[in-house]
Amino acid sequence: MFIRRSKRDLIELGEIEPIEGELLRQLPSYCDPSGDAKSEERLFSKPADPSEAQIIRDWEEFVRPEIRHLFLSARQVVEKDLEQLNSVSDSLEELSIPLPHGDAWLNTLNQARLVLAARYDFSEEELSSHESPKTFFQRDVALMQINFYAVIQERIIDALESG
């Protein structure tokens, strides 16, 4: 797969392999922290030390719903863009992301990476390791997904900054 910025102000993902397409299609589903307290805690972290009880109470009442809405909106933008991909594919695919959708993609990729990292409780050392896994348990696959989404994030940042 390659990722580049086109002259038509699009971020183009080309030559997407079937496995890459599948991981992209799954992206929005990994953003849901439901049922996992650690993921929920990471996506909606506290804005101050616990001693600042009033700030935290106000935040939970007024700000958290807005942030939840922001995350959901970003996911919806990505879901809409992903409709360009076939539901099942055994050939190379392409995906064009309008430049104004770049932030929504970065946000959604980050949501998925943070939820996966919290859910599988990866250490800093594991996250920065570039060794190939020796096993393929669900946890190993989750780490590969985090790294795959990180590469896409990096390329989208490059594309956004190359204007």
């Binding site: 996506l43 909606f44 972290s45 506290k46 804005p47 101050a48 030390d49 600042e52 700030i55 700000v63 807005e66 942030i67 922001l70 946000n107 980050n110 949501q111 943070l114």
Partner: peptide, 12 residues
Amino acid sequence: QRLHGYLLLATL
């Protein structure tokens, strides 16, 4: 608030 919107760990 904006930093949390970008999913950074930020506090006041």
